[in-house]
Design a protein around this nucleic acid. Structure first.
Lengths: 236, 236
DNA sequence: AAATGTTAGATGTCTGACATCTTACAAATA
DNA sequence: TATTTGTAAGATGTCAGACATCTAACATTT
């Protein structure tokens, strides 16, 4: 990532203050002049920062009145909501809810993909499973995670549903970091390889119910792994 | 909605030109100076418009090089993607994909809600079913749609998953308009009442599989209704 | 041929000003 | 007194022009 511009810094800091509860939903944030003084930037820079938060429906700007914080359920940015949710006491709850969401999208996409996936993509899936196996044998963690994510990406695309892909994209970045954490354990890697193999075979059979079920089992395993390996080990 | 500011107008027009294919993904949009001349606004206004599109990941601004259009699957704004998808020849395909997405989220949320919903919310659900029935009897279309949407909202909240609610919010506005169209037919209204009744009863039994199945049947019916009543009647 | 300097064009930021909208409050009116 | 109107403060919307900094391409020097 390129280092952040002043606009990005101001937007980030303001979002942090909002998440910290300094400006609760419905309340107004300080005026542009006040913020430009506090952050030692020009009013224009503050305005552009506000615009980015407004575009994500985090703020509502009302001419002549001020700028107000929207309730969290109106925020259009999954990442911002994630930051807000992780800030609370229960990081675990956020992680679990994230997997629940992922489960909905991935099992649904997998079900759709069963009747739409091409033979070529089936081959690619098997290729990624082989790559995971190879990375597992040679202790190549980044390679393992990369093949894992690519596998799921193929299914997402094969579902031929634009909206699912769009909604999943912000999840992708978040999951990538967490996946690197969980995939450190060799046990988890072995679990994952088996499930991916089963998913590829289910899709190959073009059986929608079986494909959905295979992906669902994978998600359940991921949830269990997260609970037993990561959350247990990290006390508050 | 408040009438749009100049920034909003410029952003909209630029997005329209992007969607129309004038600036395909990967290509660059005209420079800030050129755009400010074409739209007869100042450069700052153009910049703020760009910022809103950048915040939605529609554009990537690179200092010293220019501003570039992102591929559609990286756009973070469901509404913008919807606009782009509806612009094409196949409005039908977009409508179907939208229901597919809705199906994933709602069936998933309903499954989760089964074990989490409160007795009070169960009562509220039955109340909305009654409201739908009453609106149906008195030919109150807006009332019918309102009760319908409220019913689904209760389940969304009862799933106790923040992220699902956030992802569903932009869908809500889009669906509201389409729902008013489809619910015009009395046959569809009767279908819907039966399904909602079944969903409420399934949730009351706290049976996750049954609840999911009931919601899934409702989504299937919605898809069928859309195909036979709306899409058939509206040729390109 | 490689390293270096130059330059054009793009975005990033600043300063200061004026316009317009909302709200609150005071003054004029019935 | 109650209502209306006028005024002013504070907020966002927009503009103009300037300078800084980054990138890429080209020319120059080594």
């Amino acid at each position: 990532m390129a280092r952040k511009s002043l606009v990005g810094v101001v937007a980030d800091e303001l979002l942090d203050r909002i998440i910290a509860g300094e400006f609760p939903p419905g309340s107004s944030v300080p005026g542009e002049l006040e913020l430009s003084a506090k952050h030692e930037v020009s009013r224009m820079t503050v305005r552009e920062a506000m615009k980015t938060l407004e575009a994500q429906r985090i703020l509502s700007v009302e001419r002549g009145r001020g700028t107000f914080v929207n309730p969290l359920n109106r925020w259009a940015s999954l990442e911002a909501v994630l930051r807000a949710a992780s800030e609370g006491v229960n990081d675990a709850s956020a992680a679990i809810q994230l997997i629940e969401l992922r489960r909905m999208l991935e099992t649904g996409a997998c079900e759709l993909a069963a009747s739409r996936i091409s033979d070529a993509d089936i081959g690619i899936l098997h290729g990624y499973v082989a790559a995971m196996r190879k990375a597992h044998d040679s202790d190549d963690l980044p390679g393992f995670v990369e093949a894992d994510l690519a596998f799921h990406d193929v299914i997402l695309r094969a579902s031929e549903n634009v909206f699912v892909a769009v909604l999943f994209e912000p999840l992708h970045r978040v999951l990538e970091k967490r996946r690197t954490e969980t995939s450190k354990f060799r046990d988890i890697q072995e679990h994952a390889i088996g499930h991916h193999q089963a998913i590829a075979e289910a899709l190959e059979s073009r059986d929608a119910a079986r494909s959905r079920s295979a992906m669902d089992a994978h998600m359940q395993q991921t949830l269990d792994d997260l609970k037993s390996y990561v959350l247990e080990a990290k006390p508050a």
